[in-house]
Design a protein around this nucleic acid. Structure first.
Lengths: 112, 112
DNA sequence: CTATCGTACTATGTCTGTCGTAGTATATCT
DNA sequence: AGATATACTACGACAGACATAGTACGATAG
């Protein structure tokens, strides 16, 4: 069974997170679930990867956090995308187009 | 100017190398040039990345090396793909198909 | 005849996103 | 009462990519 290696997705976790934040503020657990759902279980972000991404991205100014009591009485840290984050997301899309094109030049059907 | 980050291509350098070795044995400098050419200058593998990839892939059994005097009198280390390397290349292709599908689910046109 | 450029590497250490493991804490379900 | 879901934090390890530096030789230019 072929699965997606972390090396391959490296550098795109941030993009996945930003994509989901385009719909409004969200938090760790929800984003994690949505990534799994949206990829139809083909990709699941690890908790530690996710939370360290939050830290990094906030430091880079791509997201902002605020704390709020959730409906279930729990304390949650919500994140929302910033203008810089939106810009970064756009750049990543352009980069993806380029990358896809390049990678596919190195794909070949092997007959045998 | 958007360029391809190393994080994005991470894990695909090996695939690029194997792709070129499908045509027969080759060596560092030549592979480096061919990657640049084939990607139309959009991607250039760093020397250190390339040679460390050779070492790793040989250890993994994906390539085999032999030393030979080149036409110009220089000594070169040639690499050729193995059966395991071919298998690995096929798996990477499958993984790519999956990855591409997943990444594109997180791409969205932003209207504004 | 000397300097530069292209070729063909090797050595060494750093960076960083990801991951493994572990732990904390509360709410809800069985 | 114990399991499960939620919502995190801490800490260290891993590995591919990279920066920097150095070696060595042949061909070419001035």
């Amino acid at each position: 069974m072929i699965s997606i290696s972390s090396d391959v997705i490296r550098g795109y976790n941030d993009t996945f997170i930003l994509y989901l934040l385009l719909d409004g503020p969200s938090y760790g657990y929800e984003i994690s679930k949505k990534i799994r759902e949206r990829s139809e279980g083909k990709y699941m972000i690890k908790e530690t990867t996710l939370y360290s991404a939050f830290t990094r991205m906030e430091k880079n100014g791509y997201i902002e956090s605020f704390s709020q009591n959730a409906e279930n009485g729990k304390r949650r840290t919500y994140y929302q995308i910033t203008e810089a984050g939106l810009q970064y997301y756009r750049e990543k899309q352009e980069e993806w187009t380029l990358t896809k094109d390049v990678v596919e030049r190195f794909m070949r059907r092997i007959t045998e």
